[in-house]
Design a binder for these strands. Structure first.
Lengths: 123, 123
DNA sequence: CCGAATCCGTGTCGATACTG
DNA sequence: CAGTATCGACACGGATTCGG
């Protein structure tokens, strides 16, 4: 078994390592919304529009197992579960902000490209 | 209706928009390696270890259709194809650097978490 | 919040056109 | 036969939909 950090680096690069954590289809969005503060499960599902409850829970569990989010079950009726970013998850969400800014800045271009790239002179 | 940004924003947020472009499993890695300069297809496939030729070509085509990379077929024998980042792709690759840095910084923690999180005192 | 059926993205293998 | 870039059929795993 490998115990040394050098041996525990089966990644191509830092980006590859990060992708192992946010590799899920919706994980980056979860990080993004959780960045503003703790959220209940339902709140999260409504925010990340398009995700199914099954997958959201699944990816939430993975993020929890990877030490990115913290799940708090208040054991109440009706069920009340909060999800919060750990310090590690917070730093990860912070690393996503530049990507978020890029998406905002080029949203029109991206939308045009996704639509079929018929014309790019939208500005 | 001249395609105002508000109309061309079918995204939840900027991060959502960015994910439409780098949504593929290997696209971020492609951006990362292409960031250093033009690369031939074979070079790219050897760099992004783990990706199959079929999927790499597929995602390369999508990136090209989205205006992120530029495909240059030299029409030579043997086949010679170069892939380069467009200015847009270059800015996208730049937005990924913070994520890359995060992965490098926490690579040991990530590796431990992926291994099952048995212990985190690897340092 | 979990399970079964289904669809889509991805991985594996094989095939193609042409040169050395 | 070996190498380069690309595509096709098939199978697996992840993601969505529906049902409990």
């Amino acid at each position: 078994m490998n115990t040394k950090p050098e041996d525990n680096f089966p990644f191509i690069c830092g980006l590859d390592a990060a992708l192992r954590v946010i590799g899920g289809k919706w994980k980056p969005l979860v990080l993004y919304f959780l960045r503003k503060g703790p959220m209940r499960y339902g709140e999260l599902q409504r925010s990340v529009r398009g995700v199914s409850d099954k997958v959201l829970i699944q990816q939430l569990k993975e993020l929890e197992a990877h030490g990115i989010v913290l799940r708090t079950d208040h054991r109440e009726i009706p069920p009340r579960v909060d999800y919060t970013l750990t310090p590690l998850g917070c730093s990860l969400a912070d690393a996503l902000t530049s990507l978020c800014g890029w998406g905002e800045k080029h949203s029109a271009t991206i939308a045009a490209a996704l639509a079929g790239r018929e014309k790019e002179g939208v500005g």
